[in-house]
């Protein structure tokens, strides 16, 4: 009998929004497996409320709560996930392909003798379910089969709807300790921002090297639109904006309703992180820039001229 275990992600006891997409993916998978049970697991310290919230979309919730799990160490969190997977004989383990999920999921797979499909975009088939995932910076989409009895899947949160509610599963503490980790958490230098989080925002305004490091026009437009700010690798490498804002193949993948790219050429590695956006706007001085090939609306103009005009006009709409 198939059983799906969805591992949620939280920070300071608050669930990440993508955890609900992981539940959606888990439910999708369970249906394809002929009506498997969906269990959820949350690991951390002070995660009782998060567990209750997960219970709405899962048949059962397991909670590994304690000081050993206070920091998101791959070793300790994988130990809890392995304990939960064994306790319920999970056949499929699902987690978001965030840095948290990418860090710990392979350790879970290794210990359970499972194969792992990473950054999965969708599932195909029933019974023997296969996984679609991007390769070569999104230049190709592969369908992969995981041949082991237990399968670990990290999913791209933006590609799955949030899980349905109304399951109201029971919540129970998991008997797990973090083992004896060989890593120690020292500090977390959080990038604080009043703007919405990049992967969760409805609108993203992103800047490239064309900004020459001056993000004022980007930020002004973001504030008018209630948007998150994103950046290309060139911008993060130069130290103009925090690394955390990099959108792309090796940064964050976003899929907002509206993505405005200003002063980015549209390198394939950047496109890999934003091609799934509903509407794409490009502002670039160079009419030949590849970004125009994916833009729904392209404006050939200087961003320092166009963005302030755009901010002004958008503000008037409100």
């Amino acid at each position: 009998m198939a059983t799906v275990l969805v591992i949620a992600e939280q920070a300071k006891g608050v669930l990440k929004k993508a955890s609900f997409n992981a539940l959606g993916a888990g439910q999708d998978l369970a249906k394809r497996l002929g009506g498997a049970q969906v269990h959820a697991l949350v690991i951390g310290q002070g995660v009782g409320d998060a567990a209750k919230q997960l219970a709405e979309s899962a048949n059962a919730v397991h909670v590994a709560d304690g000081a050993a799990f206070a920091n998101p160490l791959a070793e300790t969190h994988a130990a809890a996930a392995i304990a939960a997977a064994k306790a319920i004989s999970a056949t499929h383990i699902v987690i978001v392909a965030s840095t948290y999920g990418k860090d710990m999921a392979p350790r879970v797979a290794a210990r359970l003798g499972a194969g792992i499909a990473s950054d999965v975009l969708s599932f195909t088939g029933e019974g023997n379910v296969h996984f679609k995932r991007a390769m070569w910076a999104g230049n190709a989409v592969a369908t992969v089969e995981v041949t082991t009895a237990i399968k670990v899947v990290t999913i791209r949160g933006t590609e799955f709807p949030a899980g349905a509610k109304g399951l109201n599963g029971s919540v129970a503490a998991l008997a797990a300790d973090g083992g004896a980790p060989k890593t120690k958490f020292l500090e977390f230098n959080e990038v604080k921002s009043a703007r919405p989080e990049l992967t969760e925002a409805r609108v993203v305004v992103s800047g490239g090297r064309g900004t020459k490091g001056d993000f004022k026009p980007i930020e002004q437009l973001a504030d008018v639109l209630g948007a998150a700010v994103g950046a290309s690798r060139a911008v993060c490498d130069a130290g103009w904006q925090p690394n955390d804002l990099q959108v792309g193949q090796t940064g964050k993948v976003v899929a907002p309703q509206l993505y405005i790219a200003a002063g980015s050429s549209g390198a394939i590695q950047h496109l890999a992180g934003m091609k799934g956006s509903k509407t794409i706007v490009a502002v670039n001085k160079d009419p030949e820039a590849p970004i125009f090939q994916v833009a729904d609306y392209g404006l050939v103009d200087d961003l320092f001229k166009a963005l302030p005009q755009l901010s002004e006009a958008a503000a008037k709409l409100k």
């Binding site: 089969e145 995981v146 794409i280 609306y297 050939v300």
Partner: peptide, 20 residues
């Protein structure tokens, strides 16, 4: 392999946009 590649396809194309 524990993971086999069954099929490789081009990514879905985006409909052509316009210049404003």
């Amino acid at each position: 392999p524990k993971v086999k590649v069954l099929k490789v396809e081009p990514p879905p194309a985006r409909a052509a946009g316009i210049k404003v």
